[in-house]
């Protein structure tokens, strides 16, 4: 066997996928050929690196996201409220339902939601292009203007807002994406007075959109 033939069979050799005779011929060649032996060592070392590559696990369960999504689809497109346990109350992305918008869930503990108007503490933000948004951590609010009591007692349903932040963290625009405009007016006023920490992506200050669902939840008995 010459070097070219040996190198062509190294992959099969590593997998022990050669006939007895073929394997022995390569064994014999490798004993006498330092160049091919070095190639084999290099191949084995790089494959070991691949095997040792750490497995990356999702931070949150994919299953709950998928089930939420299926639930939303069952209820039809539009703003669907989902109730989830506190630990799981993370934002939800439903990219294909509404163009360039992220839906999110702002249901905190159910007990909390029942007792008083809920001003959604969780939010989701994005930067990047419309087609390919990059998700970043929601910037911290440095001067909050949201308070309980912004929504009137009779208010029902949810308000879904987009706040666009300038690079310095000031609020550029607040847009009501979904919900009753007359109920939203005082909330929009309040949201305009907020201020955030500037967001940086790879060192550069960026414009960020923050999506928030603000709702007053009046939950009646659970479905049976």
């Amino acid at each position: 066997m010459n070097c070219r033939e040996v190198l062509a069979s190294l992959s099969a050799y590593v997998d022990r996928d050669l006939s007895g005779a073929g394997g022995h011929a390569i064994d014999a060649h490798l004993e006498s050929c330092a160049a091919c032996a070095a190639q084999l060592r290099g191949l084995r070392a790089s494959l070991d690196c691949l095997a040792a590559l750490p497995r990356i696990a999702p931070r949150e369960s994919v299953a709950s996201r998928v089930l939420d999504r299926l639930e939303v689809e069952r209820r039809g497109p539009g703003l669907a409220l989902l109730f989830r346990p506190t630990a799981a109350s993370r934002p939800l992305m439903l990219p294909s339902l509404v163009h360039a918008a992220f839906f999110l869930v702002a249901a905190a503990g159910i007990g909390f939601a029942l007792q008083r108007p809920l001003v959604g503490p969780s939010a989701w933000s994005r930067v990047g292009t419309e087609e390919y948004p990059e998700v970043v951590q929601v910037p911290r609010v440095t001067s909050a203007a949201l308070a309980d009591g912004l929504l009137s007692e009779g208010a029902e349903g949810s308000l879904f807002f987009e706040t666009r932040l300038a690079r310095d963290g000031s609020v550029a625009t607040v847009k009501l994406l979904e919900g009753d405009a007359s109920e939203a007016a005082p909330v929009i006023e309040a949201l305009r007075r907020e201020r955030f920490e500037p967001t940086r992506l790879r060192g550069q200050p960026v414009v960020v959109s923050v999506y928030r669902l603000i709702s007053r939840l009046d939950v009646t008995a659970p479905r049976t």
Partner: peptide, 14 residues
């Protein structure tokens, strides 16, 4: 009163 049974989509593996 609603209980946490309202929770949908909590992916508990049984």
């Amino acid at each position: 009163m609603a209980s946490s049974e309202v929770a949908l989509g909590s992916a508990k593996v049984v």
